[in-house]
Amino acid sequence: MLVLLPPSETKATGGDGAPLDLASLSHPELTATRRAIAEELSALAEDVPRSLEVLGLSERQAEEVRRNGELWSSPTAPALERYTGVLYDALDIGSLSEIERKQADARLAVASALFGLARGTDAIPAYRLSGGGSLPGLGTLRSTWRPVLEPLLADADELIVDLRSGAYAALARTPGAVQVRVLSEDASGERKVVSHHNKSHKGKLARALARSSEEPASVEDVLEVAAGAGLRAEREGERALCVVTSA
């Protein structure tokens, strides 16, 4: 099973790993694209005002540009420890047992604008780059990633559970994946797509899938794992399900 997680704009700082070594990352077929994006991003950081404009940042976020300028020299940390925020708080990777952490590293991957896919143990630095953006020398990240990332995911011979947000889902389409959305249900039974509980519930589902002693291989398995974790999940179609939360 492969669970695709959205990244987060916020990243944990520091780390105790050696500087970025693209050759050490999983999925070596992505190395050339990773290098092109990393080199473009770090070169762009030499011009702070231009970087802020391209990345859609304010002057108060100039520190994010500095991080990009240090991509090749700053310390690294495992991907599942680098990303922070609501989803990753719910995933709570640090509280997993040793066995569960190994399962998480094997089953979870972060959809990254810089790395394409970052597996749990991939050692990566802090950076700032959004999936819906573009870089001057490369164009849109969607057009950069799709030709290499879509074939990789299409060749996967395992169940894919797609928890990515829109901009990152656009980097590589996964028509055969199990699509998950979060719905809010009010007292009258009316449901609507929400953002407030979205990340938290996806993080809880990812945690449950990582902890499962049996590796899910079907939509029914995913529903069973979700129910066991106290999540209210329902099938919406052949390859789709929803997690329902109270309004």
Rank of each mutant, 00 (worst) to 15 (best):
G94Y: 10
A113Y: 11
R119F: 13
S112R: 09
R107M: 10
A109S: 05
I93L: 05
R119H: 14
A106Q: 13
I99Y: 02
E98A: 15
L117M: 05
D92R: 09
R107T: 08
A109W: 06
L108M: 02
F115V: 04
I93H: 00
D105H: 14
L108R: 04
L117N: 02
E100F: 11
G116Q: 05
G116N: 01
L114G: 03
G94L: 13
Q103I: 13
E98M: 13
A106P: 03
D105M: 08
D89W: 13
V110T: 07
L91N: 00
R101V: 10
I93G: 00
V110D: 01
L91K: 05
R107D: 07
F115L: 07
G94E: 02
I99M: 12
A118G: 01
R107N: 08
L91T: 02
A118P: 03
D105C: 10
D105W: 13
E100A: 13
A118I: 11
E98T: 15
Q103Y: 10
V110C: 04
Q103R: 15
A118D: 00
A118V: 13
D105V: 04
D105I: 04
I99R: 13
A111M: 15
E98R: 15
S112E: 05
D92W: 06
L91I: 05
Q103S: 11
R119C: 12
A113V: 04
R107A: 12
V110S: 01
S112K: 06
K102H: 11
K102C: 09
S97N: 07
G94K: 09
K102F: 02
G94T: 09
E100D: 08
V110R: 03
G116K: 07
R101G: 01
A109Y: 04
L91V: 03
G94M: 10
S97R: 13
I93K: 00
Q103E: 11
I93C: 02
E98L: 14
F115G: 00
A106R: 15
R107K: 15
I99E: 13
A109V: 08
E100H: 06
K102E: 12
R101T: 07
